[in-house]
Simulated scan of single mutants.
Amino acid sequence: MSDSASSSVRQARRDLAARLGEIRREAGLTGRELAGRCGWHPSKSSRIENARTVPSPEDVLAWCRACGASDRSQDLVASLRVVEGMFVEWRRKERDGLKRVQEAVLPLFERTRRFRAYSSWLVPGLLQTRAYTESVLRAVQQRRVAVDDVEAAVEARMERQRVLREGDRRFAFLVEESVLRSSLGGPDVLRGQLDHLLTVGTRPNVSLGVVPMSPDRLRMPVEGFWIYDTAQVNVELVSGYLTISQPSEITLYEQAFSELATQAVHGPEAWALIAAAAAALG
C-alpha cells in the first residue's frame, strides 16, 4: 500500500462515511431528519457522516432504509466489514507463533470450492513441498517472530494441502516465471519444488499457469493474492495481511486474475518453462 496501514484504514472509514453522506443527500434529507427516521440523537448522524464514529451493520441498514436505498445496504455493510478487519499487522497476527496462523485459515479453505491464487513472490502454499515450506517459514520466523514453532507450522500447512484431494474443489494458480527461478532454500530445495509442480499441476482439478518474463507484457506483476469463491480476497503485504470482502473490490481482483491468466501459458508451454528453470540449476 502506498500509505501506512493505519492511514489506509482511516481513509476507508472516510470513504464509507462519504458514501453514507451521498445517500442522505440524494434522499433530500437533513442529518436531523435522518436521525428522526432512525430513532437516533442528531449528533449520531453527524458523527457517522464525519467519520468520527464507525457505524454498526445495523446502523448502516437503518441509514439506507431511512433514505429509501435498501438496495445499496449490502455493499455498504461489506465495506464496513472491510474497515473493521481489512488489515492486520504481521506482528499482531503472528505474536503466538506461526502454527496458529496456518491453522486459522483452515476453515476458510474447507468451505471454499473455487480457489484462484496469483503469486509474484513464492510458490503458493498449497503447491509447496515440505522443504520449500520449511525454508519459507523459517525465514519468516527469523525475521519477525519471537516464537519458534516452525516445525509445527510446517505440519499444519502440509495437512492443509488435503483440500487439493478432497471434495469437488477447483484450483487455478498463476505464478510469475521469476518464482520458478528463486528460492530461499537453495538449489536442491528449488529443484524438488519444480519437480513437484510438474506433478501436482497435472491433477484434473488444478490449473497451473506461468506468466512468462517479457519486455512487452500488458499487465505488470502485482502483489500476490488469493480469491476464495466470490466471497473474499486475501492479500499478503510486507507489513500485514489484508482481507477484502467488498463485492466491488473482489471484482477488481477477479479482473486482475483474468488479465494475468490471458498472459500466462498453461499445459506443455508451462511445463517447458518449469523444466527450463530446473535445467538452469544444473
Results as ranks from 00 to 15, higher is better:
A12E: 03
A12C: 07
G21H: 01
R24W: 02
A27K: 09
E33V: 09
W40I: 13
S46K: 14
I48A: 15
T53C: 14
P55T: 08
P57S: 10
A62Y: 03
W63Y: 13
A78R: 10
R91W: 06
E94P: 12
R95K: 15
G97R: 09
E103Y: 13
A104S: 11
P107M: 07
R113K: 12
F115P: 04
R116F: 04
P124V: 03
Q128A: 09
T129C: 03
T129K: 03
R130P: 01
A131L: 05
A131Q: 03
A139R: 06
V145H: 12
A146Y: 09
D148E: 00
V150I: 06
A153C: 04
V154T: 01
R157A: 07
G167F: 12
D168V: 06
F171R: 12
V175P: 00
R181C: 06
S183F: 08
G186T: 03
G186F: 09
P187F: 13
L190T: 05
G192T: 04
Q193F: 10
T199A: 15
T199I: 10
G201L: 07
G201P: 02
S207L: 15
G209D: 01
V210D: 07
R217K: 09
R217C: 06
V222L: 05
E223L: 13
F225G: 05
T230G: 13
L237Y: 01
I244R: 07
I250S: 07
F257L: 14
S258E: 09
E259V: 02
T262P: 03
E269S: 14
W271I: 06
I274F: 09
A276S: 05
A279G: 08
A280D: 08
L281Q: 05
L281T: 05
G282P: 00
